[in-house]
Computed example of a mutant assay.
Amino acid sequence: MGRLKRETDLQILPSEAREHRLMLGEMTDSEVVQASLDGDARAFGELVRRYDKRLLNFVYRTIGDRDRGQDLVQETFVRVYRHLHRFDQTKKFSTWIYTIASNLAKNELRNRSRNPLVLFQTLKKNWDADNRPLEWEDTQYKPDDLFRKRHLRAKVEQAVKQLPEHHRVVFVLREMEGKTYEEIADITGCNLGTVKSRLNRARNKFAHIIAPMIE
């Protein structure tokens, strides 16, 4: 559907603009960044098209509020536009833009934590030691698979919301965004050992939270 819409949008553009957008679409992120820095007015729009939905999914899953997530994604692009000239092009653009979005999301959660009315609710139910936690390697319970099942999507998102902030960020980046450990370390500013430790705890916590919801 997204591809069809993109092709339809291209069809109604003037020929020159359509060809230019197609050209931008074939460029790497680094090339598009350079084109924008060189004064190509349409190049930044290409970056927005590439990352808008991806960032919204990431921020929404981190803070649990889609409307506020859209605001933060917009702010992310504003900051990227203002500071694009400072971007180190020896690095991955995706890591840089995710870092900005991640920092905004974490700031949002910190601001919320000052107000008890918007604190995330923690589960009160004790985990029965006789019940085994979910096996993460079982594809039945991987977040990507759960999200494909509409009736479980809300439960997965609810469980993710209840992870502590520093666990939730690495969990979303790894299990939902597919980032490597190295990319997560760059985005969060943590070393690899900390990333792996937080991810392991996040997985265990997620398993404990989601289990009663899908019994």
Score class of each variant (00 low, 15 high):
Met1Leu: 13
Gly2Leu: 14
Gly2Val: 09
Gly2Gln: 14
Arg3Gln: 10
Leu4Pro: 00
Thr8Trp: 14
Asp9Gly: 05
Gln11Ala: 12
Ile12Pro: 00
Leu13Lys: 12
Leu13Gln: 09
Pro14Arg: 10
Ser15Arg: 12
Glu16Ser: 14
Arg18Trp: 09
Arg18Leu: 07
Arg21Phe: 13
Met23Arg: 15
Met27Trp: 04
Thr28Gly: 11
Ser30Thr: 15
Val32Thr: 14
Ala35Lys: 07
Ala35Pro: 02
Leu37Ile: 14
Leu37Gly: 03
Asp38Ala: 14
Asp38Ser: 15
Arg42Gly: 01
Gly45Pro: 04
Glu46Thr: 13
Arg50Tyr: 11
Tyr51Pro: 02
Lys53Val: 08
Arg54Ile: 12
Phe58Tyr: 13
Val59Tyr: 04
Val59Phe: 04
Val59Ile: 13
Tyr60Asn: 10
Tyr60Pro: 00
Tyr60His: 11
Gly64His: 07
Arg66Phe: 09
Gly69Glu: 02
Leu72Ile: 09
Leu72Asn: 05
Val73Glu: 08
Val73Cys: 03
Thr76Leu: 03
Phe77Ile: 08
Val78Trp: 10
His85Ser: 08
Lys91Pro: 00
Lys92Met: 07
Lys92Tyr: 10
Phe93Ala: 08
Ile97Gln: 02
Tyr98Glu: 11
Ile100Glu: 04
Ile100Phe: 05
Asn103Lys: 12
Asn103Phe: 00
Glu108Ser: 10
Arg114Cys: 01
Arg114Glu: 14
Arg114Ile: 08
Pro116Met: 08
Gln121Val: 12
Thr122Val: 11
Leu123Cys: 07
Lys125His: 06
Asn126Thr: 06
Ala129Trp: 11
Asp130Gly: 13
Leu134Asp: 07
Glu137Tyr: 08
Lys142Ile: 08
Lys142His: 15
Asp144Arg: 07
Asp144Phe: 09
Leu146His: 00
Leu146Trp: 02
Arg150Trp: 11
Arg153Asn: 07
Lys155Glu: 05
Glu157Gln: 07
Gln158Tyr: 12
Gln158Trp: 09
Ala159Phe: 07
Ala159Gly: 05
Lys161Asp: 10
Lys161Cys: 05
Leu163Glu: 02
Pro164Thr: 07
Glu165Gln: 15
His167Cys: 07
Arg168Trp: 04
Phe171Asn: 01
Lys179Tyr: 07
Lys179Ile: 01
Thr180Lys: 06
Tyr181Trp: 09
Glu182Phe: 12
Glu183Arg: 01
Ala185Phe: 11
Asp186Ala: 12
Asp186Pro: 00
Asp186Gly: 00
Asp186Lys: 11
Cys190Tyr: 11
Gly193Cys: 03
Lys196Val: 04
Arg198Gln: 09
Leu199Asp: 02
Asn200Asp: 11
Arg201Cys: 02
Arg203Ile: 05
Lys205Asp: 13
Phe206Val: 02
Phe206Cys: 00
Ile209Pro: 01
Ile210Asp: 01
Ala211Arg: 10
Pro212Asp: 04
Pro212Thr: 06
Glu215Cys: 02
